[in-house]
């Protein structure tokens, strides 16, 4: 009987320790996560004022536009074609 209660006491002691460690480590993790989030947000906010165009708008521009450059060049060699067997 005594032995059983000892076991229970040991278990409860370890439980407190485990709970304490859990809080400690989860806090550490949260701290790092918030740092990462701040960095990402910082980079997003710094150029959030740019405007993107949709694919169809870009296609309209491409159709209407002529290449600005009048330069004609011989292209460098094409990559070797990879044949899928």
């Amino acid at each position: 009987m005594q032995n059983n209660s000892n076991h229970r006491r040991d278990f409860l002691k370890k439980l407190t320790f485990a709970f304490g460690s859990f809080i400690l480590f989860s806090g550490f993790k949260f701290k790092n996560q918030s740092n990462i989030e701040t960095n990402i947000n910082k980079s997003k906010n710094d150029n959030s004022n740019f405007k993107t165009i949709s694919k169809s708008e870009a296609e309209d521009l491409i159709k209407k536009s002529n290449t600005e450059i009048n330069l004609q060049l011989k292209p460098e060699p094409a990559p070797i074609e990879k044949h899928v067997k």
């Binding site: 870009a58 521009l61 290449t67 292209p75 060699p77």
Partner: peptide, 10 residues
């Protein structure tokens, strides 16, 4: 700049 690229592969 897509309006400038001439596809020369340089």
């Amino acid at each position: 700049d897509l309006s400038r690229c001439i596809g020369c592969r340089r």
